[in-house]
Lab assay of single mutants.
Amino acid sequence: SELMNSSKLIRMLEEDGWRLVRVTGSAHHFKHPKKPGLVTVPHPKKDLPIGTVKSIQKSAGL
């Protein structure tokens, strides 16, 4: 199965306009000026399962 580095996923979010608002432990929480909701990324993780990545991307509207 495909894995993604959390840094790469965070870069994709930031390029889309998401900004880090809070860190709780290894959970990084992002908000967007125009899009609704809060997106949480486990970080640092070298090997996020593709299912997790897809669900984060979906929440972020990517």
Rank of each mutant, 00 (worst) to 15 (best):
S55R: 15
S55C: 10
M12Y: 07
T40P: 04
V53F: 04
L3D: 09
A27F: 15
K8C: 12
I10V: 05
P36S: 12
E14H: 09
R22C: 10
E15V: 07
G17K: 03
N5T: 14
S26L: 13
E2C: 10
L62T: 04
I56W: 01
I56K: 01
L20W: 04
K34M: 13
M12H: 06
H28S: 05
L62Q: 03
K35D: 01
H32Q: 01
L38R: 10
H29C: 08
M4Q: 13
K45Y: 08
L3Y: 13
S55E: 15
S59V: 13
I10G: 01
V53S: 04
R11K: 13
L13C: 02
L38H: 07
P33V: 07
M4C: 09
K34Y: 14
G37K: 06
L62V: 06
N5C: 12
V23L: 06
T40Y: 14
K31E: 13
E2L: 09
M12Q: 10
D47C: 12
K58A: 14
T40G: 06
G61Q: 08
F30H: 01
P33L: 08
K54V: 10
I56D: 02
V23D: 07
K54C: 10
K34V: 14
S26A: 10
N5G: 13
L38N: 08
I50D: 15
V39M: 04
G25K: 13
K58S: 11
L62E: 02
R22S: 12
V23A: 14
G51E: 15
D47R: 11
S7C: 09
V23N: 06
D47H: 14
P44N: 04
T24A: 11
L3W: 08
S55L: 11
G51Y: 09
T40R: 13
A27R: 10
R19A: 10
P49M: 05
K58L: 13
D47I: 15
H43W: 04
G51T: 12
P49N: 08
M12K: 06
H43S: 03
I56Q: 01
G51N: 13
E15P: 00
E14S: 07
G17Y: 02
S1K: 06
G61L: 05
E14I: 11
G25A: 14
S7H: 15
E15F: 08
P33S: 08
V53T: 05
L38Y: 13
R11M: 12
L62D: 02
I10Y: 02
R11V: 10
K45F: 10
S55Q: 14
A27S: 14
M12R: 07
H43R: 03
R22N: 08
L13G: 00
I10L: 05
D16N: 07
G51S: 14
S1D: 14
G37V: 03
P42Q: 05
H29W: 13
G51Q: 13
H28M: 06
F30C: 01
V41Q: 00
S6C: 02
H29L: 12
V39N: 01
H43T: 03
V41G: 00
A60V: 03
L38K: 08
L48G: 01
S7V: 08
S6W: 04
E2F: 08
K34Q: 12
H29T: 11
A27P: 01
V39W: 01
K45R: 15
K46H: 14
K31G: 08
V21I: 11
G61W: 04
I10E: 02
M12G: 04
F30P: 00
I10T: 02
D16R: 04
K58F: 08
K31H: 12
P44E: 03
K45S: 07
I10S: 02
G25D: 14
P42H: 05
I10W: 02
V39G: 00
S7I: 09
L13S: 00
D16C: 04
S26D: 13
V39A: 04
S26K: 12
E15Y: 08
I56L: 03
L13Q: 00
G17C: 06
D47K: 12
G25H: 15
S1W: 05
S55K: 13
K35V: 03
G25E: 15
T40N: 07
N5H: 11
D16S: 06
P42N: 05
S59Y: 07
P42L: 05
L20V: 12
K46G: 09
A60N: 01
F30D: 00
I10D: 01
S59Q: 15
H32D: 00
L62M: 07
Q57D: 02
W18A: 00
H32L: 01
K58H: 13
K8Y: 12
V41L: 04
I50F: 10
R19L: 12
S7F: 15
E14K: 13
K31I: 08
N5S: 15
I56C: 02
A27T: 09
M4V: 08
L48T: 02
E14F: 07
R19H: 11
K31A: 11
K46S: 15
G61D: 05
V53C: 05
T52L: 15
H29A: 11
K45E: 09
K31T: 15
P44F: 04
V53L: 06
L9P: 00
L9W: 03
P42S: 05
T24I: 09
G25P: 15
L9Y: 02
S7L: 11
G61M: 06
E2I: 11
G17Q: 04
H32E: 00
I50V: 12
G37N: 09
D16V: 06
P33A: 11
L38W: 11
